[in-house]
Simulated assay, not measured.
Amino acid sequence: MVREELQAASDELRKAGEALGGEGDVATRIHDQSDQLAKLATRSSGPDHGRLDRHMNTLSEIADQLDGEAKDHVEHAREKVREYRETVEGI
C-alpha cells in the first residue's frame, strides 16, 4: 500500500533539492526528509502523529531557510504531510 500524500511529499522534496542544485546542508536535509517520507509511504504500517509532526516541524524549519521555487516545493511537501496526518486516527 502506498500512502499517496507521503509519496507526493517526497517527490516535492526531490524537486526542491533539484532547485537548489543538490548541494549544501539544506539540500542534504531536504534529501534526508525525502528519503524518510518515501520509506514511510511504502512501509507496512503507517507513521503516528508524533512522527508526522516531527517531519512537519523539520519541513517548516527548512522552508524558513529558503526562497523561490525550492521554498514552494518544501511548503507543498509540508502540506501533503499535513493532509495525510488528518487521516491518521488518534489525537
Results as ranks from 00 to 15, higher is better:
L59G: 04
G50C: 00
V88E: 09
K71Q: 15
T42D: 08
I91F: 11
D53W: 01
Y84Q: 00
R85N: 10
S45H: 01
S10E: 12
D35V: 09
Q33E: 15
A19T: 01
I62S: 04
G24K: 09
I91Q: 09
R14I: 13
Q65E: 15
R43F: 05
L13Q: 01
M56V: 10
A8R: 13
D53C: 00
H55W: 06
G68V: 04
D53N: 10
G17A: 03
D48N: 12
T28H: 05
D48A: 11
G21S: 11
S44I: 07
R3Q: 09
L66N: 06
H76R: 12
A70N: 06
T42K: 15
K15E: 05
D32S: 11
K15P: 04
T87S: 13
A27G: 12
T42V: 13
L6P: 05
L59W: 04
Q36C: 02
R3L: 15
A70V: 01
L59Y: 07
K15F: 01
K15I: 01
L6Y: 12
V26K: 01
D32P: 07
Q33I: 03
A19V: 01
A16R: 03
S34H: 01
H76C: 01
E23A: 14
Q65V: 02
G68F: 01
M1D: 06
A41F: 13
G17M: 10
E83R: 11
E75N: 08
A41M: 05
E89R: 13
L13A: 08
I30S: 00
R43E: 15
L52R: 00
E69R: 08
D53A: 11
T87L: 11
S34A: 15
A16S: 08
Q65L: 15
K39F: 05
V81E: 00
Q7N: 06
K39M: 11
E69S: 09
D35H: 14
G21R: 10
